[in-house]
């Protein structure tokens, strides 16, 4: 029972030969919410993509253990079926594929034979309502022409229905107005429970007013440089990331946002 949900050990990651993560170690237990903060270019999105098994990144050292098993080399879809979920910062559009069809297919993949086609409509409708999404959303194409807020709600909608064990939220708060932020945060809070672990990746402390983290980590140049409780967010609010930035990181953030974004 004391086995951690997620255990990242000394993780080193490169993209096209360039080192991005340089020895990350992090443990998330069931029921915990961890916030991972840091300036642009510090490697936050790289970590979320690597946890999901993005093929563009290479793990050169270290391991990712999920429920005690080594997931470092596991395929993306197998991780998802095991209950790892990534809410994307910039979810991609899939023209011609309706939201309902997509979500149904994903649920079938996630739950296998336990998926009940009959109850799909009801649970789908319920989740839409809870997130304040109109019903015609079902027939729209995945992320195609969605506003920033619609994309984020759509991510939380999937998270609600796919019932992950570990949810990685990659800047789910970015680009949201205050009302949308509240709705999305409520959606996340509803899913909190003793079984679910959450890794909340954010640039701003704003969302932490709504989703209270148990622990906060600060990432700088691919390393966790501080870890602490809620009070760390308040400190960051005062000081900003200045103490954690270097000229190199700033230059990197300005020049290579597309790669790391």
């Amino acid at each position: 029972m004391s086995q951690p949900l997620l255990e990242i050990k000394n993780l080193h990651v490169t993209i096209e030969g360039k080192p991005i993560l340089k020895g990350i170690s992090l443990t998330v237990n069931r029921g915990e919410v961890h916030a991972l903060m840091g300036p642009n270019g510090s490697g936050k999105s790289t970590l979320s993509n690597v946890l999901m098994g993005h093929p563009k990144y290479t793990v050169t050292q270290g391991t990712i253990l999920f429920q005690g098993e080594d997931y470092t080399a596991l395929s993306t879809d197998a991780r998802a079926r095991a209950g790892i979920f990534l809410a994307f910062q910039y979810p991609t559009a899939i023209p011609g594929v309706s939201v309902a069809n997509f979500v149904r297919t994903a649920m079938k993949a996630r739950f296998g034979e336990a998926f009940e086609a009959k109850s799909f409509r009801k649970s789908f409708k319920g989740a839409l309502e809870a997130l304040g999404i109109s019903e015609n959303f079902a027939t729209r194409y995945v992320n195609d022409g969605f506003s920033g807020g619609e994309k984020k709600r759509h991510e939380v909608l999937q998270m609600t229905l796919l019932k992950p064990r570990l949810a990685i939220l990659d800047e789910t708060d970015s680009g949201l107005d205050i009302d949308a932020l509240k709705t999305v945060s409520e959606g996340i809070n509803r899913l909190r429970g003793p079984e679910l672990g959450i890794l909340l990746i954010t640039h701003y402390q704003r969302i932490l007013d709504y989703v209270q983290p148990d622990k906060i980590h600060v990432l700088k140049e691919g390393q966790i440089v501080r870890s602490g409780g809620k009070e760390l967010a308040l400190e960051l609010e005062k000081t900003g990331y200045k103490p954690y930035e270097t000229e190199a990181a700033e230059a990197h953030a300005a020049g290579a946002k597309g790669v790391l974004g």
Partner: peptide, 17 residues
């Protein structure tokens, strides 16, 4: 990647696309 991150195998993801 987006579809596989939702549990779809590569062939299934490709088919949906």
């Amino acid at each position: 990647f987006y579809l596989m991150s939702r549990g779809l195998s590569r062939p299934l993801a490709q088919r949906l696309i």
